[in-house]
Simulated scan of single mutants.
Amino acid sequence: LKVHYFPKRILGAVLYSVYLEGFLFCKVRYSQLHHWNEQLRRIFGKGVPAFPPKFYLAMTKSMADERRAQLEQYLQNVSIDPSITNSDVFISFFRKLQQDTFKIQTQQSFLDVYLADGRYLRIDIQTSDTAERVLEVVSYKIELSRELIGYFSLFLIQDHNNGELSVLKKLAEFELPYVSLQSMKESPCKIGIRKWYMDPSLDKMLMNCRTSVNLLYIQVRGWDFSVSLAQFLELAQEVQHYGYIKLAPCSCDYPEAGCTAAIHVGNNEISCCIKLPSNQIKEVSFKINRVRCWQVTFLGSVTGQGLDQFLELRFEYNDSDTWRWIAFNTKQVCIT
């Protein structure tokens, strides 16, 4: 859970905007978080991180900035513990916040969940159903073995005018797909099911299930082999960037400022085809085990809805035994 806070005062109370993976997720007041923290402590005791204290005097700008930083750190620490994130008190709290923020009441509806080949399943849902619940329903309808559900996830996908698709983010298990989709209604987005892991060797775990093999098969587009699906997947694994997620072109400062990059993410690396200002092409692979630390900076949003966001991914990388910071500007930071 990556969150950012931008204060807005409503009727005397500061309203914080919470961003999940760079997209507006919900809005919340300090008092709501304080009450929720007390609920968590009654259930989980000392396992709950320290909550930012109240201020009984008017907050200065520096105090407000400190509180924002503390609240962000608190939520990030809370979301690390699966026993908390899987609890009813966690899920119900963020369910209500997400619905209240986008003014969507709980009611019967339907949701189209797309496969990688453009086909979709229309499923009956409650607007308050979580991504975990929706994924279970989809898996049941397509007869995906229950033991293999964990290898797949729901994603928010942008549909461009030229027919290209961009994977914007993986939906968190406690996120409400219907609400998240409605929050992006001004842009052509859809919910899709895809494998979520980046290690191609895990494909072997799915080969004994017809449905999982079909899902893998249709996710690898643009090929036409007159062989069985299993043979096709074995052949496809020999192709460069098999199993990787392709990101939209973006700007970067490696090896110099003013470069653009075509990026594939997977198998513990960020593989880049970088175009230099001189129009020369440079192939680079950033290995994850050579990254010492990283940070995501939310640089702003034109509308506040997410698709107009400006995000920067910076990581410190061991480049030829020298540590240096490398930056990419992309909407799809969460995928990396």
Rank of each mutant, 00 (worst) to 15 (best):
Y5M: 13
F6R: 04
F6L: 08
F6Y: 07
F6T: 05
P7N: 02
P7T: 05
P7S: 07
K8G: 09
I10H: 14
I10A: 13
A13C: 13
Y19C: 00
E21H: 08
F23A: 03
L24T: 05
C26F: 04
C26P: 01
K27S: 14
V28T: 07
H35A: 12
E38R: 10
F44W: 01
K46M: 12
V48A: 05
P53E: 15
K54W: 11
A58R: 09
T60K: 12
S62A: 12
M63A: 14
M63Q: 15
A64Q: 13
E66M: 12
E66C: 10
R67W: 01
Y74D: 00
Q76I: 08
N77M: 07
V78H: 02
S79D: 06
P82A: 11
S83P: 03
S83F: 12
N86V: 06
F90P: 00
I91W: 03
I91H: 00
S92E: 07
F93C: 00
F93D: 04
R95Y: 05
R95Q: 09
L97A: 06
T101P: 02
Q105I: 14
Q105H: 13
Q105C: 12
T106D: 12
T106A: 14
Q108W: 04
L111Y: 03
L111K: 01
A116N: 07
G118K: 01
G118H: 07
R119Y: 10
Y120D: 10
S128W: 07
D129Y: 11
D129S: 14
R133I: 04
V134H: 04
K141T: 10
I142G: 02
E143V: 06
E143H: 14
L144P: 00
L144W: 02
S145K: 13
E147L: 09
E147A: 13
Y151R: 04
F155K: 05
N162W: 14
F174C: 07
F174V: 01
V179A: 13
L181C: 04
L181G: 06
S183F: 02
S187L: 14
G192W: 04
R194N: 08
R194P: 00
W196N: 07
W196P: 05
Y197S: 00
D199A: 11
L202W: 08
M205G: 01
N208E: 11
V213R: 12
I218W: 05
Q219F: 05
G222L: 11
D224E: 08
D224I: 12
S228V: 06
S228I: 06
L233N: 02
L233K: 00
L233P: 03
E234R: 09
Q240L: 15
H241I: 10
I245N: 05
A257S: 12
G258M: 08
C259S: 00
T260A: 03
A262Y: 13
A262G: 08
H264M: 07
V265D: 00
C273I: 14
I274K: 01
I274W: 03
K275P: 02
L276E: 06
I281V: 09
K282Y: 11
K282P: 08
S285I: 11
K287I: 11
K287V: 11
N289C: 10
N289Y: 14
C293N: 12
W294Y: 15
T297C: 08
V302M: 14
V302C: 13
T303H: 07
L307P: 02
L311R: 01
F315I: 08
F315A: 08
Y317C: 03
D319V: 07
D321G: 02
T322D: 06
R324M: 15
A327H: 14
A327D: 07
N329Q: 15
T336A: 13
